[in-house]
Amino acid sequence: MKSDIFVWVEQFEGEAPGASWEAMGAARSLADEHGGDVVACVFGADGLDDLAQEAISYGADKVLVTSDPSLADFRVEPYAALLAQAVRGFEPETVLVAATFRGRELGPALAVKLETGCIADCTELVSEDGQLMATRPIYAGKLMSRCVIPERRPQVFTTRVRAFPKPDPDPGRSGDVVELGPLMGEDEIAVKVAGFRESEGGVSLADASIIVSGGRGVAGPEGYEPLRELAETLKAAIGASRAAVDAGWIPYEHQVGQTGKTVSPDLYIACGISGAIQHLAGMRTSKVIVAINKDPEAPIFKVADYGLVEDLFDAVPALRKALEKKLT
């Protein structure tokens, strides 16, 4: 029985997100347990050699590389076509894709092309009776579901960002790099990329290991200033509650929660956030939660590990000073 595992390695401007290496780590552990090769798939315009080597250092036995100008920016059409063709050629048992925005497009598109199942946003993958059993959150994490793809192959899974540990790269590992030609010419691709506007600086929420988040308690756009200073000290990303986003104090990109981003950092510092169920849905799987709120009855203290019952405008600068004293 063939039991190779494909892992799609996402890249933006030649760099892969940590989530792709987390998926690689998950694939590596499964392959170590059950045999089979881990095959990385890397698509892009050029300069992919370093990325291919990186994929090997993170656990790939083989890397399929396709370079073509048409693959510079992610587009689901050519990427899914290419990945589907590679899957047909190599017949892996399993395909893993990190559940980033792009990965959440690629996984289901691939599954439709191959008429197979795709289990999205897995937080756990274990083998049981010869099947891969996935665990994934549903109803905003209020419940969990165990899912399996009993018959169809290959089976596709997207792995939730930060749910699987990122392996330590081993530069001493070796593997084969195989070049594959592109499948679609630019004139066959319907969607055209007309530009990309990068959001202004800062750490992206999805893969941040620390998030400093502000809610209605920050009381205005300028209220984020002390949070930003704290975030800078901690190399953290800035999050927000919907109340703050709806008030127009901070762009939607920062919203955490059921209708915002789901995050799972090592440390989540909630400042002036009451802890509504929809907010908790987006951050309850954080490893450590700190709440700063002047209301001791605020529900956020029910999920937090540590709490400061203080005015955030006193506590946040004090925390930054205490950190600077300790960390330098």
Binding site: F12, P17, D73, F74, R75, T100, F101, R102, V191, K192, V193, A194, G195, F196, R197, E198, S199, S204, A206, D207
Partner: peptide
């Protein structure tokens, strides 16, 4: 997307 806005036609 994570890094910003992709404009497509």
């Amino acid at each position: 997307l994570e890094q910003g806005r992709q404009v497509v036609e």
